[in-house]
Amino acid sequence: MISSKICLVGAFAVGKTSLIKQFVESIFDEKYHTTIGVKIDKKMVSLEENEVQLIIWDIEGVDIFTDLKPSYLRGADGLLFVIDGTRPQTVEAVDAICQMVDKHIPGSQKLLLINKCDLREEWSLDKNQIDHLDFDKERIFETSAKSGENVERAFRTLAYEILNSKHKSVSKDSK
């Protein structure tokens, strides 16, 4: 069994905790609970012949009062950057975090989740902003923690990418 640490990062109130709740327990709660520090959850994901145990770190949202503590990211194999489609300023927060991540954990797998796609008509994102973040198209997911749309798929993709990268590094080591 492979155990893997992944982190959800992003601005406050983008839906990180809700995404995890939806993924782990298939529950959505309309109430907003702000996360302080870190919450940790876990879920087993089966991929083909492999079992990956995801230890999911739900890290408090970034705002003007709270910086992201890089030590929380240490040792993470994968990161989910979460932005709120209805709030363009959340993209900027992710942009800042991206730079920090590149510096601290360069080898990690990264996906971008544009959350709240159940409110797509209220989205006000600039395409250039997203492009600026420099994610491959297949690494961007439009999700909804409320409806559950793409949530499972995003997490599974991350797990798959992590597994792939591990296999690669193992084969590289053996060479």
């Binding site: 940790i40 959850d41 876990k42 030590s71 240490r74």
Partner: peptide
Amino acid sequence: QDPDLVSSMLTAINDFVSD
């Protein structure tokens, strides 16, 4: 509690304190 979560949380607490 689930030991996986406990160990991660202990690490997080440690990170928090040292930060």
